[in-house]
C-alpha cells in the first residue's frame, strides 16, 4: 500500500476556501467547498497520472497470477469427479481385451452381492474395467466393483474369457459371440 500524501507542503491551502462572491448560489458554494476540501495535491495528481500511464492494470495482473490456482482447482475437481465416476481401478475392459466379440453395451451381468447371492444388473453398460483382480461395472443403475474371486463361480472358464462367464454362454460354434436370436449374454 502506498503511503498517503502527508507532506504539509503538498496540502491545499489551509483554512476556509476563498469566500464566494455573493451572487453564487448556496449549492455552488457547497460544491466549491467540497472541491476545495477534497482537492488533492499536485504532487499526488502527478504521481497517479504517471503511474496510470506507465503501469499495467493491477487487478488484471492479479487475476492473471491467480489463474493457475483456479485452473489447478478445476482440474483437481475434475480428476476427483472422474475417479468417482470410473471407480478406483479404471482400466481396460477384460471382456473387450479377451473377447472383443461380446457386446458390452447390451450385456447382462450377474454380480455377487457381497458374497451372499448373485444379484443381476441389466441395461446398457456404460463402463466395464478390470485391474488387479477387480471388476468395475457401471451401468445406468449405478456403479460397483467386485473381486473376481467373489464373482459367480466359473464352470470351466476356458477360452480366456474370465472366471465369471458361464460356460453355457460359450458357444464353440459361435466364436464371435453374436446371439442369432438377439438374446443378451450373461458374463
Amino acid at each position: 500500500m502506498r503511503q498517503p500524501d502527508l507532506d504539509p507542503r503538498s496540502k491545499p491551502a489551509e483554512g476556509r476556501p476563498p469566500q464566494p462572491a455573493p451572487n453564487i448560489s448556496p449549492d455552488q458554494q457547497l460544491d466549491d467547498r467540497l472541491r476545495a476540501d477534497l482537492e488533492p495535491s499536485e504532487e499526488l495528481v502527478r504521481r497517479v497520472t504517471l503511474r496510470a500511464l506507465s503501469s499495467r492494470d493491477p487487478e488484471t495482473a492479479r487475476s492473471v497470477s491467480w489463474a493457475p490456482a483456479w485452473v489447478w482447482s478445476f482440474l483437481l475437481v475434475l480428476g476427483f469427479a472422474g475417479w468417482w465416476w470410473l471407480g478406483p481401478y479404471p482400466g481396460p475392459s477384460p471382456v473387450g481385451s479377451t473377447d472383443p466379440s461380446i457386446d458390452s453395451r447390451s450385456a447382462e451381468i450377474l454380480l455377487p452381492d457381497r458374497g451372499r447371492s448373485a444379484g443381476s444388473s441389466t441395461g446398457p453398460i456404460l463402463h466395464l474395467s478390470n485391474r488387479d483382480g477387480f471388476v468395475t461395472v457401471s451401468s445406468a443403475q449405478g456403479s460397483r466393483w467386485v473381486m473376481l474371486s467373489n464373482a459367480v463361480p466359473s464352470h470351466g472358464a476356458d477360452g480366456g474369457v474370465g472366471p465369471n462367464v458361464k460356460p453355457n454362454q460359450l458357444d464353440p460354434s459361435n466364436p464371435s459371440g453374436d446371439d442369432p436370436k438377439g438374446r443378451r449374454r450373461e458374463i
Binding site: 500500500m1 502506498r2 503511503q3 498517503p4 500524501d5 488533492p40 499526488l44 504521481r47 497517479v48 497520472t49 503511474r51 496510470a52 500511464l53 503501469s55 499495467r56 492494470d57 493491477p58 487487478e59 488484471t60
Partner: peptide, 17 residues
C-alpha cells in the same frame, strides 16, 4: 487517502489499457 490513491490509479490504468 491511501485507498483513494490506489483506486484512482487502478481506474485510470484500466482506461489506459
Amino acid at each position: 487517502p491511501e485507498l483513494a490513491e490506489d483506486v484512482a490509479q487502478d481506474a485510470l490504468s484500466v482506461l489506459v489499457q
